[in-house]
């Protein structure tokens, strides 16, 4: 067992290689699910307007009349080349949807994570240190409620509470900002910064608060419980007592030994929560009319545009896989035991 230096890059490489099989399984599942789902994309998209022969023509044009394995292989090949296909209903390349709407989802989820960490970790640590006191019980109840409450309910409640103050909630016409910003990265917050339009930046940030907070609360519930349990565990750990026995000051023991070690499993779970965040993001976007991928997904799903759904879901799956691998790597950097 040589020192940790040689093994970390090897571990990272292993994790990265694992992306390939994980991705393959995911893509296959997406493909199968959409073929098993009832209804036929062509008749769903234009059903009722065309006769059977015209429908068959459309199917042939989309290649849907070919054997499944041919379609599957073609789909695989396209995904490898990052070609997610086109929508059936309005012939938009999926990659454009991802480009145009992905930014809004990205800032929404990052903002939500920020809120979740800011709320969840301090509250969890506080509750853990004051176990079974009134504040611990209240924090736990708060955590359960925020986790259990449906997003659209929390969201609408917050809107009702906040709207009278004049704080931007949502606006059907231009959900993120009333300002026009030159699209460069298509992440509107970044674009506004590039343009140096600080009024727009402030406006965009204000618009982010409510949706991010709503989604963040859901995640905060998970974090509170997780951090609390882990801090209770590490406070009892032998090395914490041993540190006290060496005369390390209590606040230092708590910070360096108990808190830090309690956060390791939390990071792992954060990785697992990426999927929860994505599904939460879809509901949040719908609630706040947020122009992200989730809104697009729901819209195309309602239109039974399976090609669009398949493309967007594949992309989301890729994001989830990559983030969870990144979290694994982060974990290995923090915890030397993981590398073996």
């Amino acid at each position: 067992m040589s020192a940790g230096s040689g093994s970390l890059p090897r571990y990272i490489l292993q994790r990265l290689l694992l992306i390939i099989p994980m991705m393959w399984v995911l893509i296959t599942v997406v493909f199968i699910l959409l073929r098993v789902a009832p209804g036929d994309p062509v008749s769903a998209a234009v059903g009722g307007k065309l006769d059977e022969e015209a429908l068959d023509q459309r199917r042939a044009a989309l290649g849907l009349d070919r054997p499944l394995y041919v379609q599957y292989l073609e789909y695989l090949g396209n995904v490898v080349r990052l070609n997610f296909g086109e929508t059936i209903s309005d012939n938009r390349p999926i990659i454009n949807i991802i480009r145009d709407n992905g930014g809004a989802t990205l800032t929404l989820t990052l903002g939500a994570f920020l809120f979740a960490l800011l709320i969840g970790i301090p509250l969890g640590l506080y509750a853990g240190r004051r176990r079974d006191t009134a504040s611990d019980v209240s924090i736990r109840i708060f955590g359960v409620i925020t986790y259990a409450a449906p997003i659209f309910w929390t969201g609408l409640l917050l809107v009702i509470l906040v709207a009278p103050t004049g704080w931007p909630t949502f606006d059907i016409a231009s959900p993120i900002t009333k300002f026009e910003v030159e699209p460069v990265t298509r992440i509107i917050l970044v674009d506004a910064m590039i343009a140096g339009n600080w009024d727009a930046v402030i406006d965009i940030l204000q618009h982010h608060v409510l949706p991010c907070f709503t989604l963040g609360l859901l995640l905060a519930g998970v974090f509170i419980r997780l951090v609390r349990v882990n801090i209770l565990q590490t406070l009892k750990d032998d090395y914490v007592e041993a540190a006290r026995a060496r005369g390390i000051a209590e606040r230092h023991v708590i910070r360096r030994h108990a808190f830090r070690n309690a956060l390791v499993p939390v990071i792992t779970v954060i990785g697992l929560q990426v999927a929860l965040t994505m599904s939460g993001a879809i509901l949040t976007e719908k609630t706040f009319n947020w122009p992200g991928l989730g809104t697009q997904l729901v819209d195309y799903l309602t239109a039974r545009d399976y090609a669009a759904v398949q493309g967007i879901v594949t992309f989301i799956a890729i994001v989830v896989v990559i983030t969870s691998v990144l979290v694994d790597v982060l974990n290995a950097v923090i915890d030397p035991r993981v590398r073996y």
């Binding site: 032998d238 090395y239 041993a242």
Partner: peptide
């Protein structure tokens, strides 16, 4: 075995 902080 458990008296040293595994992360340090």
């Amino acid at each position: 075995l458990t008296r040293l902080n595994p992360l340090m």
